[in-house]
């Protein structure tokens, strides 16, 4: 199966300053997004996520590299027929009402009037903005704009949706709503690429991720492959055992009344603790194996830079 988006060795520099000085922002980006998946593109502030997306959309022209979108060269309008895009910090025509705004984009896709009206009503409802449809966009809050922006991205019933920080500026309930919309898109067979800082969101809904740091992709793949299932350490809470006896087996993190929270790294030491507790007629209150999270991975990658 052909990828929905493939980016190969994309380089981009910007010249800034009075005496132009070149700064390479993208230093050879390559990754691809497969059909039907939710792909997370993550990286710290200023890593080059938005710059990558702008290259894909033809807003900026890469100095080098190839981009293919929905099986066509990425600048081909026919590829964009089936694409939806939500920019970060959406800015829209503030003199239009939400309905006029969506209608304008619907017209650009040549959707006939009756189908357009029906779709606009459905999308406004989907993003929870049906009550504000007659309000000019200049009176919208940031989160409301974000929602209308998402409706705009879906106006052409796209096969592939690119969302630049779709969860930014939303309240917790709104974040869940948008996450559900994204999951629903996958259920409808659509492909989604989105960027986010919020790792829990990525962890919760993405199939695959790419991590970009300083203009380079440091890691990409299935979330389950990147974040190893390997147990990093085990947290055990016990009581009824002398602290000194436990000290050799693990690092005691907190002591409350007679309860001790231990961080145990080696797995056979966990067994030793269990035997020790049995021998002393003590009790195990909890035993939690900690696996690696995306955050651990992310922090590991970003730190050395």
């Amino acid at each position: 199966m052909n990828p929905v988006l493939s980016i190969e060795n994309v380089h981009k520099s910007f010249s800034t300053g009075f005496i132009p000085k070149k700064r390479e922002i993208l230093k050879g980006i390559s990754f691809s997004v497969a059909e039907g998946e939710i792909f997370g593109y993550l990286g710290p502030n200023g890593a080059g996520k938005t710059t990558t997306l702008k290259s894909v959309l033809g807003l900026i022209f890469p100095d080098e590299g190839r981009i293919e979108l929905l099986g066509r060269p990425h600048l081909d309008p026919r590829a964009k027929e089936r694409l939806g895009f939500l920019p970060e910090n959406p800015y829209f025509y503030d003199y239009l009402t939400a309905r006029e705004f969506l209608d304008f984009y619907g017209q650009l896709f040549g959707i006939p009037k009756s189908a357009r009206d029906e779709r606009i009503a459905r999308l406004l409802k989907l993003v929870g903005m049906d009550r504000s449809s007659g309000l000019p966009l200049r009176k919208f809050s940031r989160g409301m704009l974000q929602r209308v922006g998402l409706a705009q991205a879906l106006i052409n019933d796209p096969a592939f949706v690119i969302l630049d920080e779709p969860l930014g500026g939303l309240d917790p309930l709104g974040r869940k709503e948008i996450r559900d919309i994204i999951l629903n898109l996958r259920r409808e067979g659509k492909t989604v690429l989105f960027t986010s800082h919020i790792l829990q969101d990525i962890e919760m809904i993405c199939d695959r991720v790419a991590i970009i740091v300083g203009g380079r992709i440091l890691s990409q793949g299935k979330l389950t492959d990147l974040v190893s299932e390997k147990v990093l350490f085990t947290e055990v809470t016990v009581s009824g055992v002398e602290l000194e006896e436990l000290a050799a087996l693990g690092e005691s993190l907190t002591v409350q009344a007679d309860r001790v929270l231990l961080k145990v790294v080696e797995e056979d030491k966990v067994q030793d603790i269990l035997t020790l507790v049995q021998k002393n007629n003590g009790r195990i209150h909890s035993l939690i194996p900690r696996t690696q999270t995306l955050e651990d991975l992310f922090v590991d990658m970003v730190k050395p830079q």
Partner: peptide, 12 residues
């Protein structure tokens, strides 16, 4: 005002 971002992402 960056309104051109969404516009250019459409098939125009």
């Amino acid at each position: 005002k960056r309104t051109i971002f969404t516009l250019i992402s459409k098939p125009i």
